[in-house]
Design a protein around this nucleic acid. Structure first.
Length: 208
DNA sequence: ACAGCGATTGACT
DNA sequence: GTCAATCGCTGTA
């Protein structure tokens, strides 16, 4: 199976722009057991050194070095010692920023995802940041993978359509900069995680 | 070396 | 609605 990844220039833009434009695009995950494809339906923007909620707020450390490198690279971290969260690095080097992938919708390979996560329910397969990483077999070892490389085991491609509304709300589960409206998701998509729309606004999908 | 904490989830009252 | 699981990262010593 051959996939054409989005170019690095797509990710070398303002983090909010990248976040909104990632909705509807597709994540391709290749493993020894098969290929899984999923559509981005919910994301959050983390704005780098100026954003108290962003890991890169503390500057360059062993963990955050990847933020200051190339855009389009994966950053996966462990949360609560149990779950993993997938992010995509944004902005031209050496600026820091990332987009957290909070939910995706399976496009193909959901049988493999079910096996990876030991569940049968389609919705609960990928409707949360810790759930989708388990379904797609992602962990810290994937930090640094270039998702603009067609040979990569993890890459991002164009989506099927961009005909949807985008809703905007506060980010979920954080204690710093909690009022910033930096969570974006596809309106009415069943794979979007809780909470649905706590005082959010709706806008038309941005093209590209 | 070690204490405190966290971009979550699932189980339980 | 509440709460615990569990460990990598960071700051402090």
């Amino acid at each position: 199976m051959d996939f054409k990844p989005l170019p690095r220039s797509f990710f070398e833009r303002d983090t909010i722009e990248v976040a909104k434009n990632l909705l509807g695009k597709q994540l391709v995950r290749r493993t020894e057991d098969g290929v899984m494809v999923a559509k981005f339906v919910e994301v959050e923007a983390y704005l780098g050194e100026s954003d108290p909620a962003c890991h890169a707020y503390v500057g360059v450390t062993p963990r955050t070095a990847v933020f200051f490198g190339k855009a389009g690279v994966a950053y996966v971290f462990v949360i609560y010692g149990i779950y993993h969260c997938l992010n995509v690095i944004t902005l031209p080097e050496p600026q820091a920023g990332c987009v957290l992938i909070r939910a995706v919708e399976p496009v193909s390979g959901s049988d493999l995802m079910k096996r990876n996560r030991q569940v049968n329910d389609e919705i609960s397969l990928t409707n949360g940041p810790g759930k989708l990483t388990k379904s797609l077999l992602l962990d810290r070892s994937h930090t640094g993978i270039d998702m603009t490389d067609s040979e990569s085991g993890l890459l991002i491609t164009e989506g099927e359509n961009s005909d949807f509304d985008i809703e905007v709300t506060k980010r979920v589960g954080i204690n710093k900069a909690k009022d910033e409206l930096l969570r974006f998701y596809i309106k009415d998509n069943p794979f979007v995680s809780y909470p649905r729309n706590p005082g959010g606004k709706s806008t038309k999908a941005a093209s590209s």
